[in-house]
């Protein structure tokens, strides 16, 4: 291997960040422009910049539907990717991610139990105050599964076992959810099935006031623990010998990952393969294992990936919007397969 000039590395890094930021802007606008109703770009921009002067219907479509959806895509992509990166590093497993490890399943199970348990209460006159309870329940579900995975991975030092366990847990959670569906009313059932397909568009502006702050908090927590993530990359023993308070640090990172993956799952449904694929794209593009670069890179790439998936989901000419879950799976799975072939031995990151 030829030695690489560190200054060139730095320039390349900076160039990639600028490129990703520009792409993010472009994808964001493209996402707002695309939808089942074809709107002239000028009118859409008008509604965004001078809402008072825009046509009423266009204003409604853009501000009440498309803008929240684009914002949701950005935060959901960011959140899932960053939590995927955290899990891959903490478990030192390149195939880890919120979906594969069953974190999303844990969150959805908790949400389902909550919804079912809450429905009878609602008839008694108790109402949900906002979306916070739903979010908190999802975080708890995600966190519980993370702790379970940690417990198992500390017992069996084998990456494959942890992954298989995650899949088993996902199936078990899915089974319980199916049983819950069996007992639920017809209207709830439809809502549930739509929810399991994943959707960026069902989030209301009111819910965004919960989702956005929660995910911003999760990201800030992740950024605060970037340095520790680097240490975890070498394994627990090294991290400890470098002075990282293992238990506390891992708890903070898990909290961050649970908030990120749990919030997205609660409000958008389980969206797979973003969390597992995006961190690998970041590694390949930035050629580094340093989380101080990888984490911002994953963040930007995740937002881009989700916006792109959403644009594909509503390509012009399509009558209806495709389920976002299918699009991310079809985009993400090839990347994961390519990564497995490239790594051959996927024993470490």
């Amino acid at each position: 291997m030829t030695p690489i000039n560190p200054i060139l590395d730095r320039q390349r890094e900076r160039g990639l960040f600028v490129l990703l930021a520009v792409l993010l802007g472009l994808f964001f606008i493209a996402d707002i422009l695309s939808g089942s109703v074809l709107l002239p770009a000028a009118e859409v921009l008008q509604a965004l910049i001078h809402p008072s002067r825009a046509i009423e219907t266009v204003k409604t479509i853009v501000l009440d539907f498309r803008l929240p959806k684009a914002i949701t895509a950005v935060v959901a992509g960011t959140a899932l990717s960053v939590s995927g990166l955290q899990m891959q590093t903490i478990f030192r497993n390149p195939l880890a991610g919120p979906y594969v490890l069953g974190i999303s399943a844990g969150a959805s199970l908790a949400v389902a139990l909550f919804a079912l348990g809450f429905a009878p209460l609602m008839t008694l006159g108790v109402t949900l105050s906002g979306s916070w309870p739903l979010a908190v329940v999802a975080w708890a579900g995600a966190f519980a599964v993370l702790l379970l995975v940690l417990f198992v991975s500390s017992r069996v030092n084998d990456n494959m076992t942890v992954l298989i366990l995650g899949m088993l847990f996902s199936s078990a959670a899915g089974a319980v959810v199916s049983i819950l569906q069996y007992f639920s009313s017809e209207s709830m059932l439809k809502a549930f099935i739509v929810w399991t397909m994943g959707s960026l568009g069902s989030i209301t502006t009111e819910q965004l006031t919960v989702v956005v702050p929660a995910i911003v908090a999760g990201i800030l927590l992740a950024l605060a623990k970037m340095k520790d993530l680097n240490a975890f990359l070498l394994g627990e023993t090294y991290a400890r010998s470098l002075g990282v308070p293992i238990f506390r640090s891992r708890l903070w990172i898990f909290l961050s990952a649970s908030i990120l993956a749990g919030t997205v799952t609660a409000f958008c449904g389980p969206i797979g393969f973003v969390g597992i694929a995006v961190p690998h794209l970041a590694r390949v593009l930035f050629r580094t294992s340093d989380h101080r670069v990888l984490l911002p890179a994953t963040l930007l790439l995740g937002a881009n990936a989700m916006l792109l998936s959403d644009i594909i989901a509503q390509l012009p000419g399509l009558q209806a919007t495709l389920p976002i879950n299918s699009v991310t799976a079809l985009l993400g799975i090839p990347i994961v397969i390519w990564m497995i072939i490239r790594n051959r031995k996927f024993a470490t990151l």
Binding site: K227, R287, T288, S289, R292
Partner: peptide
């Protein structure tokens, strides 16, 4: 501490690995 584990870390240069040694001395951003 140097463990007996055979570390296989892609995307990490020797200088990056050695720089890990400075971990206890650097700030939160490292």
């Amino acid at each position: 501490y140097v463990s007996t584990e055979n570390l296989r870390l892609p995307n990490m240069r020797v200088a990056d690995l050695v720089a890990y040694g400075r971990f206890p001395y650097t700030g939160w951003l490292g």
